[in-house]
Design a protein around this nucleic acid. Sequence first.
DNA 1: CTATTCTCTTGACAAATGTTAGGAAATTCA
DNA 2: TGAATTTCCTAACATTTGTCAAGAGAATAG
Lengths: 189, 189
Amino acid sequence: MEPLKDCISNQVSVDNTSLENILSMFETIHVKKGDYFLHSRTICQKMAFIETGYLRMYDIADGKEITLWIGSSGKFITSLSSFVFQTVSQWNIQAVTDCKLHVITREKHLHLSKKEPKWLEFDNLLLARSFALLEQGAFAHLHTTAQERFDALLKNEPELFLNVPLQHIASMIGIAPESLSRLRKNLKN
Amino acid sequence: MEPLKDCISNQVSVDNTSLENILSMFETIHVKKGDYFLHSRTICQKMAFIETGYLRMYDIADGKEITLWIGSSGKFITSLSSFVFQTVSQWNIQAVTDCKLHVITREKHLHLSKKEPKWLEFDNLLLARSFALLEQGAFAHLHTTAQERFDALLKNEPELFLNVPLQHIASMIGIAPESLSRLRKNLKN
DNA sequence: CTATTCTCTTGACAAATGTTAGGAAATTCA
DNA sequence: TGAATTTCCTAACATTTGTCAAGAGAATAG
């Protein structure tokens, strides 16, 4: 649980007792490549800290899988609005490699929110950071070409290209897999 | 302040004393068309509930103004990550029509967060809802054409087309103003 | 009211990306 | 290992969208 412990203590100043109490609410699980952490059309009851591996969040539109985000080690993943509002989830969350996750249920999350103010603070920061990230992505889509988004992703998350099928990366960038092939070809020349 | 009052009481169950206390932290201001609620490269110290009018949030990239979002009556607007983390804001927030706003400063926001648990709850819901909205927008950009995004916006926020310069709407949809013209032309035929 | 500025439209052309179809390469499974 | 499946690449062509240039129309300021 060290990576999770670090993730929390790096963002909020919390004493050891509270931190241990928070960590004790998480359960460590392993998800195999191809298996699902969450199915769409169900209500999301958990959120996970990714210790190792990659998971993608996707929905199907017009018969095609659209990947909105790919989570990697050190990140949290959940179907946020489903988790918060207990509405049916739009998203599937599937492991694209074998994963080691630390999972907290909604119940325990609510429990911590009441008992550990620092957890609430951490959760708020997490949410605000996620918002900022998403905002950057949305902004990028408004003023960059596929080429530029590809270059940026390659620079910022090169490991993604080694561990995740390119079709999912293409989808996340907002282009067809064939177009991604072209961009990669340009790179080599 | 009735619209703000309703907005809060519709989302969280709060007694009258607390509600009045919360409302008393807001200050009503008027912003004229073209004036700025926030300039980029400054640190955002306030957030606003829009009672009437329209404001756009934009940044400049490659010499062009890119509008990420246009807020209308009943919505809150702020440069979220700047407001939360007190970092320099990327966004300009400018009135595109005369506006009536109810404004709360960061100080008073923090004060309420400590004194009025219901405010914190409301703020959390607001953040989660904003996240969900942004997420939908990002998803739409991954699998829809400009035409489809135009149609959807026209259906969901028709008033926007009557009150906001089309160039800003085009930017928000992610297309050139000339392209928006073409889409509008198609509509008529 | 008039001049100025801002906004919107149009058309021709260029560039980027999607689509379709086929096959090569890599991976997985039995 | 060998067959089946998945993933990736390529090429030709279609479509969408961007860019540039010009001008019409609307809003605004003096």
